[in-house]
């Protein structure tokens, strides 16, 4: 291909599109959810997400997820620059399908937990956390 001014512009534009796509895929909550559920419908039910109503410090917000029959639980912080928080996979010797950890929240937002149950269906729970000081160190 002859490298004309027009071709060079086209190549530049397509390179930008290709480079831009994976970045977007990693940052929107919808994409992260779709990757986890494979587009399956998400219902309500056997999952609880425990998070404080008000967190003074967004750097360490204690959360707990629990479900009776989950195989996997994904936690998302919808208002964070990178929404995925953690994915818990429970093995054979897990006594309960529950875990707790501490997360960072950039500001007041909804935290969502989605569980994949043993029968292959998905359920979700959400909690709104008010954050006084954000945890992104901006």
């Amino acid at each position: 291909m002859e490298l004309t001014r027009r071709n060079a512009l086209l190549m530049g534009a397509s390179a930008f599109v290709v480079a831009g796509l994976p970045l977007q895929a990693a940052t929107t909550p919808e994409e992260a959810i779709a990757a986890f559920t494979g587009g399956a419908e998400i219902g309500e039910g056997d999952i609880t997400l425990t998070a404080p109503e008000i967190a003074e410090n967004g750097n360490t917000v204690p959360i707990e997820v629990a479900s009776e029959t989950a195989v996997e639980i994904m936690v998302l912080a919808l208002g964070n620059p990178t929404p995925p928080v953690a994915t818990f996979k429970f093995g054979k010797l897990a006594a309960s399908r529950a875990a707790s950890t501490r997360i960072r929240l950039a500001g007041t937002q909804d935290v969502v937990a989605i569980a994949k149950l043993e029968d292959g269906s998905f359920v979700q729970a959400a909690a709104t956390v008010k954050v006084t000081i954000g945890g992104c160190g901006g």
Binding site: P83, V85, A86, T87, K89, T101, I103
Partner: peptide, 8 residues
């Protein structure tokens, strides 16, 4: 567990 940058 898969941990992301949002873990403290």
């Amino acid at each position: 567990v898969v941990l992301e940058p949002a873990i403290s």
